[in-house]
């Protein structure tokens, strides 16, 4: 992990649970910032997809979250710390197709059990920790040079 001195950009955002109208705005903001910095398109796309899936998970399942976005010359790290119901079995939640989503969420095009697998696929390192009834922390790392 990079030291504090290496961080060239650090921003924090808030995500509100059940706020479907704004779901995805943090991810698209992060994407715009990475574009401005000039990262390669494939790196930006991976960060955007992983962050968007994680942001949707917060909107769908949690009460609220703080998103910390850190950029160093070597990597991009997005950490989502939510307060909410948590995940009872992380290993099961990582499995493609596993979902506890309601029909309402599925009608929105999400909740098919692809969220965490998609995040993993687009991350170079992914850490998920959770406590039931307290919340979940998802830390996504994407290397700046693939």
């Amino acid at each position: 992990m990079s030291g504090e001195r290496d961080i060239v950009l650090r921003e924090q955002f808030s995500v509100a649970g059940r706020d479907f109208g704004r779901a995805g705005t943090v991810s698209t903001t992060i994407k715009s910032m990475l574009k401005q910095i000039g990262f390669p398109p494939d790196v930006i796309r991976r960060v955007a997809i992983a962050t968007y899936e994680a942001e949707m998970n917060v909107v769908v399942y949690a009460d609220r979250a703080t998103v910390t976005f850190e950029v160093t010359p070597a990597e991009i790290v997005v950490t989502l710390e939510d307060q909410g119901r948590g995940i009872a079995d992380i290993e099961e939640a990582m499995r493609e197709g596993f979902s506890t989503a309601t029909d309402e969420i599925r009608e929105m095009g999400f909740g098919a059990g692809m969220g965490l697998p998609n995040i993993k696929k687009n991350s170079d390192d992914l850490k998920v920790t959770s406590e039931v009834g307290v919340g979940t922390t998802v830390r996504i790392k994407v290397l700046a040079h693939q």
Binding site: G21, G24, S27, T28, K31, I49, Y52, G109
Partner: peptide, 21 residues
């Protein structure tokens, strides 16, 4: 990247997803 998306999903998330992907 750079595909045409054919979809029956017409909500805001269809465009948000398109932008992200």
């Amino acid at each position: 990247p750079r595909v045409l998306l054919l979809t029956g999903l017409t909500n805001v998330q269809s465009i948000m997803t398109a932008d992200v992907a």
